[in-house]
Design a protein around this nucleic acid. Structure first.
Length: 308
DNA sequence: TTCCAGGGGTAGA
DNA sequence: TCTACCCATGGA
């Protein structure tokens, strides 16, 4: 049996904030170790803290958009220290972007009117992972593969190399860079079936462990987006699409991810099924400036069957 | 069986 | 900077 100690933590996002829309804002919510209970609107996740402590989180949000609160039910084996509590709330706050200010984006949405108004009801907080490492690995797993394949590969990585929760090995945290770097190459091919992406992910982990790649440096807010993009492109396995996706995950919305979904969408909605040039496609959201990725994402989301 | 997906690396021009 | 070719895998 898993340890039964429970602690409740909470944090306050900026208002307005819609928890369920943030959790279900894109595919990340269903990529392991995340689990989304759509009935109860609970995001579940096993986490390995920096000191090795394993915790299992049940994350919920209040219904009140104007006075939002995120509640974290933490299951754990030993009493949590203040540092451990702080690390958990910091991680969850990072996942839900509690430090981002969307006031300017909302003002643009109000100015546009129509279906853009809905966004100002606390939308725009696209879910991300607690660490940039996890986000890079997951983004690489979205390249040149269907979404079902992405889910399979990420689940395989977590099951093969993720840190198990004490007493319940079915619950695992996302693998650490150390675990991925130390794994033999056959784990990636024969067990996880990552295909050619295996060597990219292994090299990424090895460089992080060796200190060759400093992921904290990529989260420096003083870096310009073009400089940051150049640094992301230097990571093997990260090209233009993946770099734009990672910029979104880093809170930079001034670059678009030109992928097959984007091309198909703008072709149908704005070019009468004609395949536009990349320049034409980019021009659709250019007027949104530093918010163009969010504008594209919600333009797309309006017409999607929200089945991930 | 063949195609291709929420592309990217590399060599050569 | 641009283009052609190759890369693993599995679903359609």
């Amino acid at each position: 049996m898993a340890p039964a100690n429970e602690t409740t933590l909470s944090l306050t996002p900026p208002a307005p904030f819609n928890f369920a829309e943030a959790a279900y804002s894109h595919g990340w919510v269903v990529l392991a170790p995340n689990r989304w209970d759509s009935t109860r609107q609970v995001l579940q996740r096993t986490e390995r803290l920096s000191n090795g402590t394993r915790v299992h989180l049940n994350i919920t949000g209040s219904d009140t958009i104007e006075t939002p609160e995120i509640t974290i039910q933490v299951r754990h084996a030993k009493t949590l220290s203040p540092e451990e509590r702080s690390e958990i709330t910091t991680s969850v706050g990072h996942m839900f972007r509690c430090d981002e200010d969307l006031t300017e984006f909302y003002a643009l949405c109000r100015k546009r009117g129509g279906h853009w108004i809905k966004i100002t009801q606390g939308l725009g907080y696209l879910l991300r992972s607690p660490t940039l490492f996890e986000d890079i690995v997951k983004t690489i797993c979205t390249t040149n593969i269907q979404w079902s394949g992405t889910k399979r590969m990420v689940e395989g990585l977590v099951q093969a190399l993720g840190t198990p929760y004490p007493g319940d090995p079915s619950l695992r945290a996302f693998p650490t860079p150390e675990a991925i770097a130390a794994a033999p190459s056959k784990t990636f091919t024969e067990t996880v079936h990552l295909g050619y992406r295996g060597r990219y992910i292994h090299e990424l982990a090895a460089q992080v462990v060796a200190g060759i790649l400093d992921l904290n440096a990529l989260q420096d807010p003083t870096l310009s987006t073009p400089v940051l993009k150049k640094k992301l492109l230097a990571i093997k396995g990260v090209g233009n699409y993946a770099a734009a996706t990672l910029l979104m995950l880093l809170g930079r919305y001034d670059a678009l991810a030109i992928d097959t979904v984007f091309r198909d969408f703008v072709s149908k909605k704005y070019f009468e099924d004609r395949i536009p040039s990349e320049e034409e496609a980019r021009s659709i959201y250019a007027s949104w400036g530093k918010w163009q990725y969010l504008a594209y994402w919600f333009d797309l989301w309006q017409g999607l069957d929200e089945t991930l």
